[in-house]
Nucleic acid binder design. Structure first.
Length: 513
RNA sequence: GGUCCGUUCAUCUAAGGGUUAGGAUUCAAGAUUUUCAUUCUUGCCAUAGGGGUUCGAAUCCCCUACGGACUACCA
């Protein structure tokens, strides 16, 4: 690596919502860029007109924004396009760069690194089927290109004629014969492949006048001065082609470094994590909920499921990377300061939903009571419950250790806002004896004599009272809890009644007598 | 089928040839809590298999097995 400025890109295809694996790729790019004081750009690779999904691009931008991993060039989290100051002609949506690519494809043809091919997809499919029937591998390469309808086998006149009159020709890369390509990957080390196993990939299609991924990718990364390509493992098999393309263009000297990330795997069984797994196992695989514009099918998202973006980013960071220390909780800025590609794990990581919840629980606890009260507010409002923030914050202080998500709060704290309407059956069976009502009646009478209803005072006086009367502490306190809470759960009884106040406490006590 | 990548507790992972193979999640038990949760303590659980190299291998090499990705005029 030279002193070249670090510039990385996240280059998704707008064919649907961004998968959490995609978010992780974006995150690692972002961390790497910021760690090295470089640029993180977002480029939309929409060269497949047929697979475009409306809303997908907006989804990607919004998801990155929610995670706090905002690009500083290209399509940004605000949805604006921020241009490279040195390249005012830059555009970051490949469909809008359409005119650029053809020239590069033709440059390759002129240099003898590519050629025109006129075979129809149907003809090629037929050849593939035939080869399959003979149990052979069909490779579109030097063994066959001279025998097909290409500019290598046809006369110049015929080629010109067909280029003029036909609409479905393509430009293919002329894959060299029997050459060992030695590649370097920042995560995997040396990889080598013999070119004889590779195809003459299509680089450009006349039908829509668009490049395929391979050409667009190399041209754009070159033009945008990308220094490091950090992408998913599914691209490793095409790395030799990409190396050869840089070579054919004469760009080897400025070729970026590559790092291929392993995949995120299903929590159970085998294979990579898919949309289905989330539905099947009950966890989101997307950062944000998504409604498919065609099928109308909805998929849940981490945001809508109640995850904090910090927790989501943290758990994603640790899925395939580790700091080498035992620290597990990282704020985004800490990740920036700690992240290195050297510590990215080579093997695929199975996603573990339980650990994901644990992360959220940790972040929930880190929040202040007042912040939690603010987050709780909309839920309370929906339930038509109005309390001042100080009261709600106090409630939050009692329930934060009992919750994983903010949406657990109501279940944990309803009794702070409304008197119990039902009483837990098991608790009643265990603690509500025939003599209990009389006991609670005495307790009620005693409590009504206390004016200073603070936690300290009531706790002291009631304990003394139980002692003086020779009562059983457990019998009194557990029944007391059932009367006030409705169940055998919650923080200290005197904390609860201090917050509820004397009037409400006595009211709830009498409700069960 | 072919090419490439990978393989340490159930899961995420640590251990740059020498440790009783460490941590975290989950699970279990105990302590604390008059309850629930928290917290704390403890426990269970791993180097895929086989060959080498070496005084010594989770670590280096080879083979096998298993897993994954790719194999489109998709990205």
């Amino acid at each position: 690596m030279t002193t070249k400025k670090v510039r990385v890109r996240f280059a998704p295809s707008p064919t649907g919502p961004l998968h959490m694996g995609g978010v992780r790729t974006a995150l690692y790019n972002y961390l790497f860029a910021r760690r090295h004081g470089g640029d993180f750009l977002l480029r939309i690779e929409d060269t497949d007109s047929g697979r475009f999904v409306p809303g997908a691009e907006e989804y990607i931008i919004e998801a990155l924004k929610w995670c706090g991993i905002e690009p500083n060039e290209g399509l940004t989290a605000d949805g604006k396009v921020v241009m490279d100051a040195n390249n005012p002609e830059a555009c970051y949506r490949q469909s809008a760069r359409k005119p650029i690519y053809r020239k590069y494809a033709e440059e390759l043809i002129a240099a003898g690194h590519a050629y025109y091919a006129f075979d129809t997809s149907e003809a090629l499919d037929a050849l593939r089927k035939e080869a399959e029937a003979r149990k052979e591998t069909f490779i579109y390469n030097h063994t066959i290109r001279e025998h097909l309808q290409t500019s290598l086998s046809l006369s110049t006149e015929e080629v010109d004629e067909r280029l003029r009159t036909e609409k479905h020709w393509v430009v293919r890369f002329k894959m060299p014969e029997n050459r060992e390509v030695h590649m370097h990957d920042l995560i995997r080390g040396e990889v080598k492949v013999n070119t004889s196993t590779l195809d003459d990939k299509v680089l450009w299609k006349a039908a829509d006048e668009l490049p395929t991924y391979h050409l667009a990718n190399i041209v754009d990364d070159h033009l945008m001065n990308i220094s490091h390509v950090i992408r998913g493992e599914e691209w490793l098999p095409s790395l030799p082609l990409h190396y050869l393309l840089y070579e054919a263009f004469g760009w080897t000297a400025t070729q970026p470094e590559f790092a291929h990330l392993s995949l995120l795997l299903k929590p159970d069984g085998k294979g990579k994590l898919s949309k289905r797994d989330g539905d099947r196992l009950g966890f989101p695989v997307f950062p944000l909920a998504w409604k498919d514009p065609v099928s109308g099918e909805t998929s849940r998202g981490y945001r809508e499921d109640g995850y904090f973006p910090e927790a989501f980013v943290n758990l994603l960071a640790l899925l395939g990377w580790n700091p080498g220390t035992e620290q597990e909780l990282f704020a985004l800025d800490e990740l920036v300061n700690t992240f290195t590609l050297e510590r990215v794990v080579k093997s695929g990581a199975k996603f573990n939903p339980e650990k994901a919840q644990w992360f959220n629980q940790q972040y929930l606890r880190q929040k202040s009571d007042i912040d939690l009260a603010k987050l709780y507010r909309s839920d309370l409002e929906n339930r038509k419950i109005v309390y001042d923030e100080e009261y709600v914050a106090k409630v939050c202080s009692f329930i934060k250790d009992r919750s994983t998500f903010v949406h657990d709060f109501w279940e944990q704290s309803a009794y702070f806002f409304i008197a119990p309407t039902a009483y837990d059956e098991k608790a009643m069976q265990k603690y509500w004896k025939p003599e209990t009502p009389a006991l609670m009646s005495q307790l009620s009478d005693f409590l009504s004599t206390i004016d200073d209803f603070t936690k300290e005072n009531t706790e002291h006086l009631v304990h003394q009272w139980i002692l003086d009367k020779g009562l059983n502490m457990g019998a009194v306190m557990n029944a007391f809890r059932i009367s006030i809470v409705g169940a055998s759960k919650g923080p200290g009884m005197f904390d609860i009644i201090a917050l509820l106040g004397k009037t409400e406490t006595l009211k709830r006590l009498s409700a069960l007598l």
